[in-house]
Design a protein around this nucleic acid. Structure first.
Lengths: 127, 127
DNA sequence: GATAGATATTCCTCCGGGCGCATATGGCTG
DNA sequence: CAGCCATATGCGCCCGGAGGAATATCTATC
């Protein structure tokens, strides 16, 4: 049952936040780290999980990897992501994530492609 | 995060089928057994899980227990159950469950309250 | 109050997944 | 090619949850 796989992906907080962010567009790993405030291993593993389960796909972009929601998402996935977006509107945590994403995009650079390390080579990501 | 709890409940096939059935109205354990074709322990445990996690509530009805979705479901829960119902429309398994439920209700007796053992005391549930 | 029926609970085993540390990989740059 | 950066992977630990067999609990009935 396809649905099960989807729900299994959704039932972890970190993955939920990742997917929620991805509904706003592709993102690279370091951005996830910055926004979620989670260690690299954790982020990377959850992205791997999502990829293995077919919710997400990745491409290389020079030195980093950009993740996005799968292009041809099933109806089920689309429905559930829409539902997630809807529910997320009221959860402070999701709102903060969105806020940070927005800040990264404006303070930083180009919306989707320009990755970290471009604006501030010294300070970089505030860990 | 409330959402997580919901998704944790949704990420098992048996629970998914149970919740889906419950969107059609209250049901007692033996009906679940009959419809799902799963052993009593399994059904009972998953119902317990759903109850512990606040998606479901139960009342005694003489010798048996009738389960229902929680009365005051959160917005998140409502949204996700609606989404589930929508997705379930295309999954054969869910359709079969609904079909069996319908058959139980017509062949059997009264829609919601009348429980098993009333129609056929001899054959009972075809295990 | 003994018994039967419906359901819950306990005990056990097994497995997948979450986490973190350390290390590997793969591309870029000097 | 050496070294750095971003990211992935392997390993070990731990925990929760799934499944099933046996048993307990609660209710109705005689």
């Amino acid at each position: 049952m396809e649905l099960i796989r989807i729900y299994q992906c959704l039932c972890d907080a970190t993955r939920l936040r990742i997917l929620h962010l991805l509904t706003q567009g592709p993102l690279c790993v370091c951005h996830f780290q910055a926004i979620l405030g989670e260690p690299q291993v954790k982020v990377s593993k959850h992205l791997g999980y999502l990829k293995r389960h077919g919710l997400v796909e990745a491409r290389r972009e020079g030195n980093w990897r950009v993740y996005r929601l799968v292009r041809r998402a099933t109806r089920e996935l689309q429905a559930n992501l829409a539902c997630l977006q809807d529910c997320a509107r009221e959860e402070p945590r999701f709102r903060r994530d969105l806020e940070r994403l927005r800040r990264l995009r404006t303070n930083g650079d180009d919306p989707s492609l320009a990755c970290c390390a471009k604006p501030t080579p010294a300070k970089a990501v505030a860990r």
